[in-house]
Design a protein around this nucleic acid. Structure first.
Lengths: 120, 120
DNA sequence: ACAACGTACAACCATTCGGTTGTATGTTTC
DNA sequence: GAAACATACAACCGAATGGTTGTACGTTGT
């Protein structure tokens, strides 16, 4: 895991660590929304919502396209999948631990059958 | 999505938003480690690492058990899976958007078959 | 007994974060 | 062209974050 990946991960998880941003992401994944439309949904200033959108955009979780005076935001599902993939990698580490525990069991026990491991 | 879930999600993503914490989580998912063992891996004070462990613990991503003078930390893979599930839910919203786009196509096209909607 | 180890926690500090208001600029609409 | 709308961004502020050092306390080894 190199420095650039960690930077991206920092940005992803930080972007997702705020409930308003998670809610914005839900909306823009379900469909395009202008920033002002989004802003009307929350009990805070337009500028605050705009900043949240900017954080999501910098993290690559959302893209904006300009149409006239509106900025239409759209969620990037590929980025969401990348975050999910990171967690799957974490799970894999855990599974490795379990496998190692199984090996210890196998070493300890009288070897009845070493060829088939029905661990799944 | 109620208030308590959002609090948990805030804690999860915030805990994961720091690269040191992600690294600690990787290690304790792979196997139990004492806090001081973990601390030796990073270029920061013991207290700093201890705080990171505490953040992960409060988020429920890791549990500690006391053995003598050591505090052994172990990653909770179920919590990691819960975070992953949240992202899967986000993906589902996106898929809903795509389905709706398909419907628009279908409405636009000459009606060949309106009775069966093979959207799955 | 006592020194070394492992942990816990408080106090402090610089930086970041999440919010505000205000100002500027481009785009519709009348 | 003026008014209303949508965005962008800077400046500011209190709270939280990520680090530090110092202190205290139980546990282990000699």
């Amino acid at each position: 895991m190199n420095e650039m990946d960690e930077d991206r991960a920092d940005a992803w998880f930080h972007a997702l660590s705020d409930r308003t941003r998670r809610d914005i992401l839900r909306r823009v994944l379900a469909g395009e929304h202008s920033v002002s439309t989004l802003a009307k949904s929350y009990d805070m200033s337009f500028a605050a919502v705009q900043k949240h959108v900017a954080v999501l955009e910098r993290a690559g979780l959302l893209t904006k396209r300009r149409q006239g005076r509106e900025a239409l935001a759209s969620g990037d599902v590929e980025a969401v999948r990348s975050v999910g993939a990171m967690l799957t990698d974490l799970e894999a580490l855990w599974r490795g631990r379990i496998d190692r525990m199984d090996e210890l069991f196998a070493e300890d026990a009288p070897t009845t059958d070493t060829t088939t491991h029905g661990t799944d």
